[in-house]
Design a protein around this nucleic acid. Sequence first.
DNA 1: CGGCATCCTATCGGATACTG
DNA 2: CAGTATCCGATAGGATGCCG
Lengths: 130, 130
Amino acid sequence: MGVSEQLGDANAVSVRAPMCPSRGVLEHVTSQWGVLVLAALVERPYRFGELRREVGGVSEKMLTQTLRTLERDGFLLRHAHPVIPPRVDYSLTDLGREAAEQVWALARWTERRTPDVQAARLAYDEARTS
Amino acid sequence: MGVSEQLGDANAVSVRAPMCPSRGVLEHVTSQWGVLVLAALVERPYRFGELRREVGGVSEKMLTQTLRTLERDGFLLRHAHPVIPPRVDYSLTDLGREAAEQVWALARWTERRTPDVQAARLAYDEARTS
DNA sequence: CGGCATCCTATCGGATACTG
DNA sequence: CAGTATCCGATAGGATGCCG
């Protein structure tokens, strides 16, 4: 056990402990498609198909599954309009927005820093090829 | 393609596009064990075994793999002391610290908000059980 | 259009055994 | 202690087909 168990420890990050409920939540937020869905919804609500195009490369099945999980966790709202053809909008809840904004910041940071990462990879690989 | 391609768009999040290099980077940072390793190393450098205990539930294999990936991406440094028994320390680079601090903040947020998520799950499940 | 059910395979990831 | 190698089961996740 780490520092996690010390009550009132400002550094406690109990998510590191196995079997901790918060770990499951973190896994949903940081899941491959969850990250991208949340980041997209920061901008505005999206329809299912829109979201699928916006988050390139996600299959219908995985998008559905991701949306369900995030909806159940209270991060987003599903609004199905009773029209034909069907129209379903997804938007962030207040809780979801808090998560999404952090995830979005991380995504932006990653984009800015990707060149540095690519340089690091080259250096790493070359150091072992020679 | 989304807003990503519009040059100079302050809202561009090109990571959403498939085949974008930054997406791979984001996946490393937000990987299940990557998140927890980074969050742990914010506090201080760790030895391999220490890290394994701190990040409960991670197998030796996955920890090794995660550390290799993050090292290659330039997020952390591996310092092997030439002693017997072997001793290897892992610490954050400047680049890694930038990522780790955001990930750490997200982990802390998740812990604070986990009760809300659990409540949302109960509400969601009950709404469909009845 | 926005699902859901089924099938099927690639990858993930744990357990175990062995090495310097 | 900090790995590496191998095996192998679990599951993530794509493809397809059907429905309201």
